[in-house]
C-alpha cells in the first residue's frame, strides 16, 4: 500500500437499482464527484437494490435477506455512499431496526454509521463548499425528496454546491418539500392519487420558469419527468449529481434518448 491509498477514503458506491437500470450516468457522475473530492471509489458487484420494495410491502424476510447481503458486500469500506436519499435512508435508518435482535444487529449498526447520501457526504463529511465542474449554467429548481429531507436532513447541501457553479441560478419552487407522489410502489398501486399529487408538483415546477428540474432521487425524478413529458413541458429533468459533475454536455436529460 502506498501513502496515497492510505490517505484516501475508500468508498463503496451503492449505485441504487434505478440508477443501475435506468440512468447509469448518475452512477458515473457520483464516481467523478467522489474521485474529484479525493476518494477512491469501488463498486461491489454483490449489490442489487436496497430492499425497500419488499420492506415497504410488509415483506420483512426478503428485506432482511437483502439487507444482510448489502451489509456483507459493503462493510469493508470506509464509507458507503448512494446517490439517493431514499436508498441511503433505508441503509442507514432502517437496516438497524430491520436486523435488530438478529445476529446481524451489531454489523447493521456499524454499517449504518458509514452510510451517506452522495451530496450530503460531499458537504457534511468531506467539507466540500464547491465543485470543480463548470456546467452550462442556467436556471434550475430543486425538489427536496422526502426521505433525504426528513430522514437525513438534506436541504442546504445540494443548494450550496449548485450555488458554487458559475451561471447556475436556483429558482425555488413553492412546496419544494412536499412529496411528488412517487412513493415507490405507491405510484403504481394508487396511480390516480399519485397522479393528482404529481400534477400539483409539476404546477409548482412550471411556475418557477426554471429550465431544469433537479433532485437527488431518481425515482422522484422519473415520476416528475414522466409527468412533465406527458404534459408537453420543455423543462429538462436531471439528477443533481450530473450537474454537479458537469456532465450536462455529454448526457441528455432524462428521456432525452440513449447514448
Amino acid at each position: 500500500m502506498n501513502e496515497d491509498t492510505i490517505k484516501k477514503p475508500r468508498i463503496g458506491l451503492f449505485v441504487t437499482c434505478l440508477v443501475d437500470l435506468f440512468r447509469p450516468s448518475v452512477g458515473f457522475a457520483s464516481v467523478r464527484l467522489l474521485e474529484e473530492a479525493g476518494c477512491t471509489v469501488e463498486v461491489p458487484m454483490a449489490q442489487t437494490c436496497c430492499g425497500q420494495p419488499a420492506y415497504n410491502s410488509g415483506d420483512r424476510e426478503d428485506a432482511a435477506a437483502i439487507a444482510r447481503q448489502t451489509i456483507e458486500a459493503f462493510e469493508e469500506f470506509d464509507y458507503v455512499v448512494a446517490p439517493s436519499g431514499s436508498c441511503a435512508g433505508m441503509l442507514k435508518k432502517h437496516y438497524p431496526s430491520l436486523l435488530k435482535g438478529t445476529s446481524y444487529e451489531k454489523r447493521a449498526e456499524a454499517f449504518s454509521a458509514k452510510v451517506h447520501e452522495l451530496v450530503s457526504f460531499l458537504v457534511d463529511v468531506l467539507g466540500a463548499t464547491s465543485v470543480a465542474a463548470a456546467g452550462k449554467g442556467g436556471s434550475v429548481t430543486y425538489h427536496d425528496s422526502c426521505s433525504g429531507l426528513r430522514e437525513l436532513g438534506i436541504r442546504e447541501q445540494p443548494r450550496k454546491l449548485l450555488n458554487s457553479i458559475e451561471g447556475v441560478e436556483i429558482r425555488e419552487m413553492e412546496n419544494a418539500d412536499v412529496c411528488c407522489g412517487f412513493g415507490g410502489t405507491f405510484c403504481v398501486k394508487y396511480p390516480d392519487i399519485s397522479n393528482k399529487i404529481v400534477e400539483e408538483k409539476t404546477a409548482c415546477i412550471e411556475a418557477t420558469g426554471a429550465q431544469t428540474l433537479l433532485a437527488g432521487d431518481l425515482g422522484c425524478l422519473m415520476n416528475m419527468a414522466g409527468k412533465l413529458h406527458r404534459q408537453g413541458s420543455p423543462i429538462k429533468v436531471r439528477h443533481v449529481a450530473e450537474v454537479l459533475a458537469g456532465m450536462e454536455d455529454d448526457t441528455p436529460a432524462i428521456g432525452g434518448g440513449g447514448r
Binding site: 440512468r23 447509469p24 463498486v43 398501486k189 396511480p191 397522479n195 415520476n223 428521456g255
Partner: peptide
C-alpha cells in the same frame, strides 16, 4: 399503473454494472 398518467423514460443503454 405508471403509463396511464405519465411517460416512462427509457433506460439510457446498458446497466451501470
Amino acid at each position: 399503473g405508471w403509463t396511464r398518467y405519465r411517460d416512462l423514460p427509457a433506460p439510457q443503454s446498458r446497466t451501470f454494472m
